[in-house]
Design a protein around this nucleic acid. Structure first.
Lengths: 244, 244
DNA sequence: ATGCCGGACTGATCGACATCAGCATCCGGG
DNA sequence: CCCGGATGCTGATGTCGATCAGTCCGGCAT
């Protein structure tokens, strides 16, 4: 069990709202119904309805969409502290699939639990709403990248964004982070071929910017990478007045 | 003034929930604070806070993001019946700009009005929530297109989606619709150059699929276009159990 | 040990789309 | 009336990244 106040979700939300003991306790209560899923089998499927939502406690997940020609576009990756299928439980419909990349541990959250928790602490509701809006902003940023950034910039931006997210939940620092993503997954997220992902990674390594090897991302030149990617973390950690 | 029950928003929502007279009246009340904006000047700006939300009554709008190199990625277009800046009013922050393409007419909606209206009729709240989730699904679909579809398919998909949306508010039919978008706007939405947009349009015209000329989109071969684009309108008009 | 499989990695070739440059038309303003 | 700006359109050239066709390596099952 993860101790109160140390769950990834609590860490993440805590970075934006100072949570009281009582609020932390309510958050911890949401972690009661613990489950484990193995890599590779979809949790939530396109079109299916009436599914539960989950808080990811451990492991990595990706949300993807399948196209007619069999190709796949990964919309987003989820890391510990992220919600899975939050929209699908609120709106009773899902437009994409959710698949664990590694074996994962999640806490199942029923819509009612969430609503009850929100009723008890509006600040928590605001924090969760903020997290949801941050996810949307990331999707928009991702869209802009696919449309208008070239491959190295896209990759650099992606690795930086991921680093920022991981740091928030204590899974990395300015020097780098562990990352179980394969080059195929990167390709499907960035709209590239796996072959080209490989070349782009080599290019960035040769330039002395980042190294991605053996499941570890190492920032060799953080400022240089930020400059290349035109990375602005504002959309990740901007704190809306709602939470003040 | 638009008569009760005939506003684009009422038409759109009415296609998914049968709205009662009372609900239509509440909806009409939201249209009271009427305003006009000219083309070209931003309504909502990146980073700014404390803005109002609007319901678009007439005209076309685009939501875009500016990148460091000066290029622009259009995230979505809004047509009558769509909300503008709904998220920015709920979350008091905006991550992209909203700019009218034509002169537009909008109804300003304050957060409180909306919350009051929702309190009176939960069905209306559900319908609006459904509309918001449909918008998100469109963004995800757009993202998948940018990542994994080639230019003609992207264009075809885009024109079909737009046609479906316009039909919902009575601004088009299976044969086509009027469309004030320039080839530059299409380029920035589809992640192409304006030059290439022109060639793609010619290609589709030569193939006898669609014609886009003089501000009018004409479907010359609707089934053929659907086949090319792998267009599935499910994500546009699927009706969640919430609304049953 | 042997074979298999998934993942990282590489060279050669090809094509889709960008970029550059230029022309034609329309329209509103001085 | 002419001018400049916006938009549509086209050809020539260049390039980024896809595709094809492999090799190499480590882990795992037979």
């Amino acid at each position: 069990m993860i101790a109160i106040g140390q769950s990834p979700l609590a860490r993440k939300l805590g970075a934006f709202v100072a949570l009281s003991e009582a609020e932390l306790a309510i958050l911890a209560r949401l972690h009661e119904r613990r489950r484990t899923f193995v890599a590779g089998r979809d949790l939530v499927q396109q079109g299916r309805t009436d599914q539960a939502a989950y808080i990811l406690a451990k492991g990595w997940v990706n949300s993807y969409k399948l196209l007619a020609d069999g190709s796949r576009q990964i919309v987003d990756f989820q890391i510990p502290g992220d919600f899975l299928g939050l929209r699908s439980v609120l709106l009773h419909t899902s437009d994409h699939n959710i698949e664990p990349i590694t074996t994962i541990e999640v806490s199942e959250v029923l819509a009612n639990d969430l609503i009850e928790a929100f009723a008890e602490t509006p600040r928590l509701a605001a924090a969760v709403l903020w997290a949801a809006s941050r996810d949307e902003a990331m999707v928009v940023e991702h869209l802009a990248g696919l449309g208008r950034r070239d491959a190295p910039t896209r990759m650099a931006h992606f690795l930086l964004e991921l680093g920022n997210r991981l740091r928030l939940v204590g899974m990395g620092d300015k020097t780098g982070y562990d990352c179980p993503l394969t080059q195929y997954l990167l390709a499907d997220a960035l709209g590239l071929s796996a072959v080209h992902v490989n070349r782009v990674l080599r290019h960035l390594r040769d330039e002395g910017l980042v190294t991605f090897r053996d499941g570890r991302v190492t920032f060799d030149d953080y400022p240089g990478l930020v400059a290349l990617a035109d990375f602005d973390s504002a959309y990740l950690d901007h704190q809306g007045p709602l939470l003040k």
